[in-house]
Design a protein around this nucleic acid. Sequence first.
DNA 1: AGGTTGACCGTCA
DNA 2: GTGACGGCCAACC
Length: 104
Amino acid sequence: MNPDAYRDAVLELVAQIPPGRVMSYGAIAECLAERSGRGSPRLIGGIMARCNRDVPWHRVIRANGRPAAGLEERALALLRAEGTPMLRGRVDMRRASWAPPPPA
DNA sequence: AGGTTGACCGTCA
DNA sequence: GTGACGGCCAACC
């Protein structure tokens, strides 16, 4: 899988995250690692940082339940607006964490 | 070509 | 709860 396709796969996956749910960078990395052999949270972060497209970027947050560094304000507003489960000012990962449906 | 940086993560103290 | 370290992989000097 070439890097281009990988980037697309990441964006595609992000686009599938339903409102009110989130995915951590690491979760995305692991999920794609299974199919592409590649994956690291940093890589996802890098891709997201450069590819500002029509994707719900705010649904991709850190593993500790806080939104991406520097985007906390904007992301938090969007997350709150779509009813993402929060807990003590952070996203409640236990409830909000989402994973793609298994391939049929 | 080599070093640094980044929308990061898990582990250990 | 916090802080330090190593690992990660592409982009960017």
